[in-house]
Amino acid sequence: MKPLQIVAVAAILAAGTWARAADAPGKPMKMDEPMHGEMKKGSMKKGDVKKAAKKKERELKPMIEKEAAGSAKK
């Protein structure tokens, strides 16, 4: 094969692999995109869940640890 043919075949294979990978499930979430489904309010973004989860974790963690420590003493 000529070098040019090799390059062409390699490019096609690479493009195909990339296309498959891009299409496969599990590609990273685009957090700034609107949420999917009918449960959302118009302006909600996928990233809102991550933000809310972090906020919730900050709020709950101390309370839950304190509660668990309190019950362990008993």
Binding site: D23, P25, G26, P28, M29, M35, H36, G37, M39, K46
Partner: peptide, 10 residues
């Protein structure tokens, strides 16, 4: 889910 099927968490 709140995301599409191709964004499922692995």
């Amino acid at each position: 889910a709140f995301y599409s099927v191709d964004e499922v968490t692995l």
